[in-house]
Design a protein around this nucleic acid. Structure first.
Lengths: 111, 111
DNA sequence: CAGAATCCTGGTTGATACTG
DNA sequence: CAGTATCAACCAGGATTCTG
């Protein structure tokens, strides 16, 4: 599991893999799907994944150029973990996280 | 799932929750279990968890003082996700991750 | 024992401008 | 289209020192 934490470092890393679980994607497709991510960040994450064997990068020498990113079997094996995260996020009501702080603090005399 | 990524930010966050899944722990117990973590980091993560309702903090006014951290039901509900991570780490052979990098890295000095 | 206070580093991320 | 280059900000994390 330590390995998981190293490979999927940062908030975007996980989201990128999740997107690629839907199938091969082009660079621009990923940028659009992950609204808010910068080209800089997306490139860095993809390079890291590539180095660790999670994704493959295929470039086509056309004009305009086309690059396809695809999960390797290793990358695809992350599906279960990503699903578990998703299930948790769906199952937990918003109020549970949002309204948690104040009451706890008051119930605790020492602090 | 986005919420998961925000709450369990950084490598230590996940490891701390995993340790608390084994039961309530004292501050020092956590430090020993998570060899290498600084008091600074441990305190910060625990405070964040407390604010978001993942753990409860109970302080006993003794000498020496004693503080117990315990997962709330919300925190315990993370068990499935943590298990999924663990399963992945165990299932993936070391070689799959280790041998994917070196050639790429040397040929491609990104920085 | 369980922190708090302070200073500092490294890595992720963004913004912008530019290229094959 | 798919990046690269550069500058800069934020935050997790570490090291150290010091309390109640």
């Amino acid at each position: 599991m330590d390995r998981f934490l190293i490979l999927l470092d940062g908030p975007w890393a996980t989201l990128i893999v999740r997107e690629l679980l839907h199938g091969p994607r082009r660079f621009t497709q990923l940028r659009e799907a992950l609204s808010g991510i910068s080209a800089h960040t997306l490139t860095n994450r993809l390079r890291k994944f590539e180095q660790h064997g999670l994704v493959t990068r295929t470039a086509y020498a056309e004009t305009p150029p086309k690059v396809i990113y695809e999960l390797t079997p290793l990358g695809t094996s992350l599906r279960n973990v990503l699903n578990a995260m998703n299930d948790w996020g769906v199952a937990v009501p918003d109020t549970a996280v949002m309204l948690a702080a104040p009451a706890e603090t008051l119930a605790n005399p020492l602090r």
